[in-house]
Amino acid sequence: MSEATLLDFAGVVRAFGRLRVLGGVGGRVAPGEVLAVGGPNGSGKSTLLKCLAGLLAPDRGRIDYREDGESLDTAARRHRVGFLSPDLALYQELSVAENIGFFCRLRGLPAARGEELRARVGLPAERLCGALSSGMRQRLRWAFALLHRPRLLLLDEPLEHFDAAGVALAAALLAEHLDAGGLAVVANPSHLELPRVAGRIDLAL
């Protein structure tokens, strides 16, 4: 029963040309659990999360992700996960509501879901994304990651640019996600109080 939904990876290797960033990383997350990924800048935290999200192909290693007993291939995994990263941006020419509405339509979700989440992260609907502060942009990234109610959340620097209120919001959203039986992998969680940490990977340079 507990194995029905599970992220399990082992021996993940990824090099960029001559630079070997990940040298055989493994881990395991079950529902309601958090896997914390630590390490200094450049140790490969973002690379690992991108590999897990299916945005980068690992050179070697196995990534196995199952939802309700169904094993997902890379394309399905990429589509299902909730991914948050400083490298991810939304359209500056569009307003907050238009951005969220666009991704709702791509994912086939009702507009009400986007509206609900926008209110939850506390963003002004009509403001153009180009005119958002960096903290507000981070809130929009949270909304993008949670939009389709993913079972697996991959959070890279989830607190970047956040003030105290932002940190509290992030903690609440993550707790809700875990209470609902979600899984999470969090990179550099130093300032976030993580509930139910199942394991920790410390990457070295």
Partner: peptide
């Protein structure tokens, strides 16, 4: 021969 590949 790429150095990235030779280290285990």
């Amino acid at each position: 021969a790429l150095p990235g590949r030779t280290t285990p």
